[in-house]
Structure formats: structure tokens, C-alpha cells
Nucleic acid binder design. Structure first.
Lengths: 197, 197
DNA sequence: AGAGTAACCGAACGATCGGTCGGGACAAGG
DNA sequence: CCTTGTCCCGACCGATCGTTCGGTTACTCT
């Protein structure tokens, strides 16, 4: 059996170690020496599993981006009133952020120094635009207040959601996904909705 | 006169160049070679003005932190009803973020790899706690809703405000400080207040 | 004119960077 | 037995890192 082996590394298990270190020290601040120490194998052994440092980054941000774009394909995000589709996307974004915390954290911190990072930034912008259009549609329906500029509101809401990666830690008896996504939806929509709920 | 000279560098003018590059490439991703190219002087000349790379970081985050803590000393932040002191702090935070944008941006991206970075993180935590206490006091007065956990709400609001550094650009005909701080206060307090405004 | 100093430079330092190389240990399959 | 392939290692590579050093230019003060 191939899935039962745990005492040796696969690209995936090595990735989970690497992403953790990347988030602690920053991608540029992490050397292959740091990674090898954290993984418990030598520096050169890492190259047996992956082609190099940048592949680890690419795998990580790809995973995060795939999960985020997956939200937009879900049925509640495609059909129904815009404001309800928006609320679904907001709640699911929080869940994905928490569920894939280290990978999304890394994605949100890329700066654009390499091709991989610039590609990640571009895909992030695409995602943001998709959600911004949803908000605009909800405003056209009259379901969200019109006295705040949509471009500005989108960015502030994204900022609130994305900031979760800066403080959420899943250590045992902390708060759950549900509690956070409820609080975010409450804060966002009680401030955005035209009518009181 | 000493203030009229502009053709030569001072620690302050060099800092403004350095901070800009730090924010574009990340602190760890910026080499002294990058800085020298951006400043138009040689690498070794930088050391005539400052002791090294880390001093530039320390000067930058100190400036940001001093501005932020200065808010708490302002009269409207010290006297009056807690909810109104809180609103003053929120609006002024936005103004400081925008007014000292590159310095605050750098502060918010510190990871904790060096002593300077760990010191900055510690002072940031202090500031956050001060504001969290203000929010708790406002809740005790019954001026903000009690169905959202205060610790969670504080972090989300901080996340929204701090995210401004990720997209705000002061290029000419953009939006002004006032417009942003109004939108933030609107979003935050329409979602937090117990009664409708 | 001469001394002092601020601002700058090219060259080089030891250390560390991401990555390569040849080979050893070990298990599976014949 | 011997081969094959996986997983790993120490040693090393050229490049780049932050920093230092010795020296040059140009301006100020006396």
C-alpha cells in the first residue's frame, strides 16, 4: 500500500512543513537550511522531492487559489439573488481561509518579486473583481446601501476577511469556523444592508 | 542655512527612499544593492548616513508607532463617552495610516525575525490592547451591541482598518483621507452600534 | 593657503544564499 | 546473488548577502 507510509516525505507532506516555516519567517526570510532543519532532513534531500524553493511556493498558493475560486463555482454562489450569493461567498471565504489557513496566509503575503508571485497576485485580483461584481449587482438590486462607494466597500470587506489569517489560530479550545463566519457576516451585512435585518 | 539643502542625503531623506523599496520588495527581499540603486548612491555610501539595514527598519517602524500612540494622547481620545472616544480613535487611525502610509505599511508587515521586528510586534500588541479596552468600555456602557464577542470584533475592525495599506494609493485624483475614514466609520459603527443612527 | 570634514566611491571581506553532485543505505523483484 | 529505484547524505558550487575599509572629491572655516 502506498498511502500508509508516513515515515518518509512526499511533496505534499514536505509542503505542509515548508508552508509553516514560510509563514513564520516570511518566504524571503526562509532559507533552504531553515526548511531542512524544520523537516528533519538534509538540505539536498529536499531537492529529491521538489525542484526547489519556488516550487514549494507555487504549490502552496495554487492550492489556496483553487479553493477560493472553487467557491464561485458552488451552486449558492451562481444562482439566486445577488445579495444572497454574496453572503454565501463571504461565509465560504471565511471557511476556506480557516480550513486552508497556512496556504491562504502565504498567498495573501506574496509581494511580486518572482514570476510565481506575480502570477499569484494576478489571480488574486481576478478573484477580487469577481466578488466586486457580485457586490455591484446586489447594489443594483437595491439590497445593499448605495451611500458607500462599491470599490471602497469591497476592499474594506476583503480587508476584514483576509485579516483573519493574521490572528486566527486553530489551537484546540479556540473559536470555531462557524463562530467567525457568523461574526463576519453579521458585521459586514448589518453595515451594508439597506434595510434592518 | 541647513534646511535648504536638498541635493544630498540625510538619514531622513534616505529613509523615505528605503521604506518605499522595502514596501515594494519586502524587507527581507530588499538588498543593500537594491537600496543603493534606488537612492542613486553607492552601497557603501549608505553606511555614511545610517549604521545599516536594520536601523532603517527601526527608524521606519518607530515613526509609525509614535504616530499611532500619539492618537491615544489626543484629548478626544481621553475624555468623554467611551463610544465617542473609540470613534475618534478609529477615524484618526485611518488618517495616520494614510498620512504615514509607507511607514505604517512596513510596520504592519513585520514578521519577527530580528530583535527590532519583535520589539515592533510587541508595541503593536500594546496598541491593540489599548483600543480593545476602549471597545470593551463602550460595550459596558451599552453603546455597542453585545452579541458579538469583543475580542473577535476588535480584531476584525483592526483588520479592516489595517488593510487600507494594501490598496490605498495617494496618486493625485484618488479618494481622500476624509472619504476613507468616513466610509470606515460608517461600516464599523453601523455594524456595531446597538441603536440605529 | 592649509586643515578639517561631510559625502561619496570601488574593492573586497566572511557569511550565507539556492542549488548541484556523487555516492551510501536499504528494500523490492528477478 | 545482482540489479533497480527510492530516499537520503556531506561536500561543494558560483552568486549574492550585509558590511568594512582605504581613499577621493569638494566645500567650509580659519
Amino acid at each position: 500500500m502506498t498511502t500508509a507510509k508516513r515515515d518518509t516525505y512526499t511533496p505534499e507532506t514536505l509542503l505542509s512543513v515548508a508552508v509553516q516555516v514560510f509563514n513564520e519567517r516570511g518566504y524571503d526570510g526562509t532559507s533552504m537550511e531553515h526548511l531542512s532543519r524544520a523537516a528533519g532532513i538534509s538540505k539536498s534531500s529536499i531537492y529529491h522531492h521538489v525542484s526547489g524553493k519556488e516550487e514549494l511556493l507555487r504549490r502552496a498558493v495554487s492550492r489556496a487559489l483553487d479553493e477560493l475560486f472553487g467557491i464561485l463555482d458552488e451552486e449558492p454562489a451562481r444562482v439566486g439573488r445577488a445579495v444572497q450569493r454574496l453572503e454565501h461567498v463571504v461565509r465560504r471565504m471565511v471557511e476556506v481561509l480557516i480550513g486552508e489557513l497556512p496556504y491562504v496566509t502565504l498567498l495573501l503575503r506574496v509581494r511580486g518579486n518572482t514570476d510565481t508571485e506575480r502570477w499569484a497576485l494576478e489571480r488574486r485580483r481576478d478573484f477580487d473583481h469577481r466578488v466586486a461584481e457580485l457586490l455591484k449587482a446586489a447594489a443594483a438590486d437595491g439590497d445593499v446601501r448605495g451611500d458607500v462607494e462599491m470599490r471602497l466597500a469591497t476592499r474594506l470587506v476583503f480587508g476584514m476577511i483576509n485579516s483573519i489569517v493574521e490572528w486566527y489560530r486553530p489551537d484546540g479550545r479556540g473559536m470555531g469556523q462557524r463562530e467567525v463566519s457568523e461574526a463576519v457576516a453579521h458585521l459586514v451585512f448589518s453595515g451594508l444592508r439597506a434595510q434592518q435585518d
